[in-house]
């Protein structure tokens, strides 16, 4: 957590094999070289994967939610159109928001398990931090 410690383990950046990331698997007290990790291809790949999933997904659910909100605010007649019994479009769209939230949750959970967790484990192993 302290500022001083973060710059202490920098020696590994000069070494030719930068996949070592400044820490042998058994040396616990030394801090990993964060800049070397950040510059590594594995880390860039992890960041790219994560951002390419979460940013579009966030945009998607926000747009979908705002569409629903704007329809509720300005298109009363459309939302009150009855579909079956007294159940109308507005209620179904609202429930669709519930369903899409759960679907996105499941999709992200699956994506993170398959594409993020193994990559994190890889980087941690290279940095000499054992994975949980």
């Amino acid at each position: 957590m302290t500022t001083a410690a973060s710059t202490s383990g920098r020696h590994a950046a000069a070494e030719p094999d930068r996949r070592v990331f400044g820490g042998q698997p058994s040396t616990a007290p030394q801090k990993p070289d964060f800049e070397a990790i950040q510059d590594s291809a594995e880390f860039a790949e992890l960041r790219r994967r994560l951002r390419r999933f979460v940013f579009p997904m966030t945009a998607l659910f926000l747009v979908w939610y705002l569409t629903y909100v704007l329809l509720s605010a300005y298109a009363h007649a459309f939302m009150a159109t009855q579909v079956f019994g007294l159940v109308n479009v507005g209620l179904l769209l609202g429930l669709a928001q519930f369903v899409s939230t759960v679907l996105i949750t499941l999709a992200y959970n699956r994506f993170a398990r398959r594409r993020i967790d193994p990559q994190v484990a890889l980087i941690r192993a290279h940095a000499g931090v054992e994975s949980k």
Binding site: V54, M57, T58, F61, Y65, Y68, V69, S72, M79, G90, L91, G94, Q97, F98, T101, I104, T105, Y108
Partner: peptide
């Protein structure tokens, strides 16, 4: 009626911000 339900929708969707970001 329905206007009360709008709160629920917002509060369910809101968790995605925490999950994804």
């Amino acid at each position: 009626g329905y206007d009360g339900f709008l709160y629920s929708v917002g509060w369910v969707v809101a968790w995605l911000v925490g999950l994804l970001l």
